[in-house]
């Protein structure tokens, strides 16, 4: 049963964790906090210049 073959387990471990830790959390974070959090002490909330996205 080839799926039980430990195979190149170290390569799989390193590569899958690389993808798991670099690509996915950035995407998840952009969903959880779509705007950069500003500290409570900030006097004035900074607003980015806005233009039509197209």
């Amino acid at each position: 049963m080839p799926q039980l073959n430990p195979g190149p387990w170290f390569a799989i471990l390193v590569f899958s964790w690389l993808v798991f830790l670099t690509i996915i959390p950035t995407k998840i974070l952009s969903h959880i906090s779509p705007n950069e959090p500003t500290p409570v002490s900030a006097e004035k909330h900074k607003t980015e210049s806005w233009d039509w996205p197209w």
């Binding site: 799926q3 039980l4 073959n5 430990p6 195979g7 190149p8 387990w9 799989i12 471990l13 899958s16 964790w17 798991f20």
Partner: peptide
Amino acid sequence: PTTQLSLNMGFAVP
């Protein structure tokens, strides 16, 4: 890839 035991153990154990 999640049918591979080595990948799943690579996530489960750490």
